[in-house]
């Protein structure tokens, strides 16, 4: 944005102060996220920069908080870093267990919400869809309804509802299990919370989709199934994947439903962070935060690349 040559000194002054203001707002946006990264390497149990850190003295920095993350909850944290250490880590370390839970729950919730959401988005974008607005409003509502209300409602319903689920304890059999305190309960809850994001991203992709491509495929002899998998699917794939990533992040970052529905076996990363922040906040939380920031950078990059790919694909199709 260049200033025109005829700009008055006052306008020039305003222009530069405007840029400074914008810079400060960007700083406000990004500083809190960046600040945790160096602080997580603090050698002291403080949440601020020590003098040694500021003078870039290597002694001011350490990996001790990452180390404490690694060994927290292990049976023999002091043992040598051999095979037995790592199997102890895999089986007992608290952060390992919550990471496994987060990934399992996030994975299945994402599959469920993406599959159902994509199919629904295909229906919602058809021009002949009846009651489109009302139905969309209902499908978007998990994003709008305050999370405490959703979680409370799910707590009552899932404590009451029982479903037959396979059990492997004492030989394989089917057992009537309560949804609350089960993996399935949290997966269903997280799938419901992730669906609005899938609907929004996939309908946005489909709104730019040229329906004549489907008719062209049909005229060339493709049945609806072939047309869908060979023509529609590849074109909307970037939108579907970003929707899935949104759904995964929603589940990966969700704490309130887990607080209400899960029992101690289904604790997730944010749930464990919540404990850490509420009880006694130590810089180990900053180490977790740093790892999560790196993950979000990775996700953001993926989504941006997908969006560009989607735009390129849509650019190819006639508008």
């Amino acid at each position: 944005m260049a200033l025109p040559t005829y700009a008055s000194p006052l306008e020039k002054a305003w222009h530069y102060s405007y840029l400074v203001i914008c810079g400060l707002i960007f700083l406000f946006l990004i500083a809190p996220i960046v600040i945790v990264i160096p602080l997580s390497f603090n050698a002291e149990p403080y949440f601020t920069f020590t003098e040694k850190m500021l003078t870039l003295d290597p002694e001011g920095y350490s990996m001790r908080w990452y180390d404490s993350l690694l060994t927290f909850g292990m049976q023999n944290p002091e043992s040598e870093r051999g095979a037995s250490f790592w199997s102890d880590f895999w089986g007992n370390a608290t952060w390992m267990q919550v990471t496994k839970n987060s990934i399992i729950i996030g994975f299945f919730a994402t599959i469920l919400s993406t599959a159902l959401g994509t199919i629904a988005a295909l229906g919602l974008t058809r021009p002949e869809m009846p009651y489109r607005k009302q139905i969309t409003a209902v499908l978007i509502s998990p994003m709008i309804v305050p999370i405490i209300i959703s979680a409370t409602g799910m707590f009552f319903f899932y404590s009451w509802m029982k479903l037959p689920m396979p059990s492997f304890e004492g030989g394989f059999h089917i057992e009537w299990t309560r949804l609350a305190g089960s993996y399935l309960g949290i997966i269903l809850a997280h799938a419901a919370l992730g669906i609005p994001f899938v609907i929004i991203t996939v309908t946005a992709t489909l709104s730019g989709f040229d329906q004549s491509l489907v008719r062209a495929a049909a005229s060339l002899g493709a049945n609806p199934r072939t047309a869908f998998f060979k023509v529609v699917m590849p074109l909307i794939m970037p939108g579907v994947v970003s929707g899935a990533l949104f759904a995964f992040v929603t589940s990966f970052d969700e704490v309130v439903a887990v607080l209400f529905i899960a029992d101690h076996t289904q604790q997730t990363i944010p749930r464990q962070m919540w404990n850490g922040i509420r009880e006694q906040i130590s810089p180990a939380i900053l180490a977790v935060a740093t790892i999560l920031v790196l993950i979000s950078i990775l996700l953001l990059t993926t989504v941006e690349l997908l969006r560009r790919r989607s735009e390129r694909l849509r650019g190819v199709s006639p508008q």
């Binding site: 946006l29 996220i33 600040i35 602080l39 704490v255 944010p270 962070m273 935060a289 999560l292 979000s296």
Partner: peptide, 16 residues
């Protein structure tokens, strides 16, 4: 980036 960063991370950062 803030949009994609965990809510708990952002809240923790502000606590710090």
């Amino acid at each position: 980036l803030p949009f994609w960063t965990s809510l708990l991370v952002r809240t923790t950062s502000w606590m710090v």
